[in-house]
């Protein structure tokens, strides 16, 4: 049973290097989650809650749809 397909993709990996060279561990610490959760989000294996999505955007100091993209296909 594959997970429900989602059209939400994210650029977290790119943003981490672009904005402050954050490692997954750094981002996890800022968000208060485990590193595995950050990995899962980046790989599209976990869809963060709306609250966490905003928190992620805030960490990078960018608008929400600079981080998450809703549409067909592409991401990073």
């Amino acid at each position: 049973m594959t997970p429900k397909p989602t059209r939400v993709t994210n650029r977290i990996r790119t943003l981490r290097t672009e904005r402050g060279d954050l490692t997954q561990a750094d981002l996890a610490e800022k968000l208060g989650v485990t590193r595995q959760t950050v990995i899962a989000i980046e790989q599209g294996k976990y869809s963060p809650s709306l609250e966490m999505a905003f928190q992620i955007a805030r960490v990078f100091d960018v608008p929400l749809d600079d981080v998450f993209h809703y549409g067909e296909g592409d991401a990073n």
Binding site: G32, V33, T34, T37, Y46, M52
Partner: peptide, 12 residues
């Protein structure tokens, strides 16, 4: 603590 603990994803 950072690798094994429970976070919001686990609750979800």
């Amino acid at each position: 603590d950072t690798e094994l603990s429970s976070d919001s994803r686990d609750k979800d």
